[in-house]
Design a protein around this nucleic acid. Structure first.
Lengths: 336, 336
DNA sequence: TTGTAAGCGTTATCAT
DNA sequence: ATGATAACGCTTACAA
């Protein structure tokens, strides 16, 4: 693979390489005709400025790194697309790496991206973890970083968060308003702060409406549909099903609904089920699943804009943006 | 952001930069003790070789580009993860770009990646399209490229394909074997070769079993659930529902099932529905969806291995690998 | 308006 | 075993 270089173009036209460079970079003075001639010949020769050389010389790569826990689920995919929208319009490229929900992989990803001279990083950590110290050190060193999602509100860093507590509260309140007396929460993981916040919102709603302790329960379940299935299976076996299940996410909820239906229970007549972090499937299953929609597109957009700000204006003031969602009430939580 | 460079380390230790370079690259002679000293000091100083400079100097980037039509659906996400598995274990990095099902974006992505000196590219085109000439020209120029998925079998290039015709045939044959007399195929897009192949397999099965022409129909529907909904809605309105629907993919099938159930039809009792390119949801919905599973992990693995071969041994012999799938028969196509 | 040349951080060839 | 130094392809003062 032989690349055409700036020298080749310069030689062909008997001009200096600076002139060729100038023709490709608007900011310098250059005669219109020479510029056009150069651009035309370059085109013909199949020349384009080598971005690697450009990066080395400019110390600016126009590359942005994104690290996400996974992109199998549409949540992060949608966010990534939104980030990409913003940055490509600004001439940046997006490099995506996924950590497979693994802290060490996450750290390796971040290091790889930093060593490749990304102009900035958007990190969605797998969980609050030990890597954070390293990230913050780099940030303090002048490296622009924006965090997303599974990060403590108190963290001194620019970040885009979702108000899990609030929307968990509203979701729970809706379940209470529907007349459910016993409500169980199929929670995510103990070490996931988003799960913790949702638990807080859940409890706040119950307390507000004076639901006694014996009428609710928090069961650590996980993030996947099969875990929803397992948890609900146990509840069925121990004949301990509540009136309503508030699930960590749609996957768990769909697992729950599946096993309930398979076991002869009707949703929502016999038991009501609520999801979270709405997926496209929510509207397609029977019954349609009530859920809290997170504004993935907006999250990505805000993250990108915030990072862009840091890149252009420095890291001075860290900013936290907390996003709101929508409670989509559908058939799965409404007994007519 | 100030990077520590090879010079800083050399100066600190009063050695030449060549020695430092050697310490980091095993292939040269260097005294064990100097090497260890250099490595240790470098570590302390927070030095790591700048990959950009390395790339410029070596003309090898250890970067692999992947271009996919989208990664919202799990199909490509799973493939990407498999590719990543292989390449990261070989010291490569993966750069993913998505074309949003848009040919121009696709071409732009490929150009961007090539200009960034990827060592090779895995391209899953949006469809058979005009860009192909450009890709092949680059390939012939010595640039390693492996194609995936929506590519003609006859294309002279290394590629990983799925045997759509065959598995469409088996899927259709299963529907016939279940006693369905009238079978409609909700097809994808005319210009998608995978859709064309599935249509071929569909027709071959019908012909083999002597289903008369008036008893089947191919309706161009699309790739999304809402299109499945729309098509089936029309069939319902015109009172033209068949015994079985064979859908382009699971999304269309789930859309179909949704509108059927909403309209009072029972699946599979009244009408039978088959998906394709199985999703994780297939097992979670009611009734569980019969579908053809494509081996995403294997596809990614083969693509990666093939590209690696081209990178290491040159582009000489183009190789085509055609993958087989699995027909998962579930409730949606079986009337007890 | 154009050219010259130093610099970006490496690798690799050639001396020593 | 180590050091100088010319590449790699570009940008950008500075000079002309």
């Amino acid at each position: 693979m032989k690349y055409v270089t700036i020298k080749d173009v310069a030689k062909k036209l008997n001009v200096s390489i600076s002139s060729v460079s100038r023709a490709f970079n608007d900011k310098y003075d250059i005669k219109k005709e020479t510029k056009e001639l150069i651009l035309k010949t370059a085109e013909e020769m199949g020349y384009f400025p080598n971005p690697i050389a450009k990066k080395l010389s400019q110390k600016k790569t126009f590359n942005i790194g994104i690290v996400v826990p996974e992109f199998i689920n549409e949540f992060y995919s949608e966010i990534i697309i939104a980030i990409q929208d913003i940055f490509t319009s600004q001439g940046y490229q997006i490099l995506v790496m996924q950590s497979d929900e693994n802290q060490e992989q996450e750290l390796a990803n971040v290091k790889t991206l930093m060593q490749n001279m990304m102009d900035g990083l958007i990190i969605a950590p797998t969980a609050a973890n030990d890597n954070m110290d390293y990230y913050l050190k780099q940030r303090d060193n002048g490296f622009p970083i924006v965090f997303m999602n599974r990060v403590e509100k108190s963290l001194k860093a620019s970040k885009i968060l979702f108000d899990n507590e609030k929307w968990s509260f509203f979701a729970t309140e809706h379940l209470i308003a529907q007349g459910n007396k016993r409500i169980f929460h199929l929670a995510g993981h103990k070490n996931l702060c988003v799960s913790g916040e949702r638990i807080k919102g859940f409890i706040r709603a119950l307390k507000k409406h004076n639901i006694p302790k014996e009428n609710y329960k928090i069961i650590e379940t996980g993030l996947f549909s099969n875990q929803g299935i397992d948890t609900v299976k146990e509840l069925i076996n121990s004949q301990n099903l509540p009136d309503a299940l508030f699930c960590e996410n749609d996957h768990v909820a769909m697992g729950a609904i599946k096993i309930l239906k398979d076991s002869g229970y009707r949703v929502p007549e016999d038991i009501t089920v609520m999801g979270f972090t709405e997926t496209r499937m929510a509207e397609l299953i029977t019954p349609q699943l009530s859920s809290v929609r997170q504004p993935t597109h907006e999250i990505g957009k805000k993250a990108a804009e915030l990072l862009l700000k840091h890149i252009n204006n420095g890291n001075s003031d860290q900013e936290t943006i907390i996003m709101d969602g929508v409670l989509n009430i559908r058939k799965s939580t409404v007994r007519n």
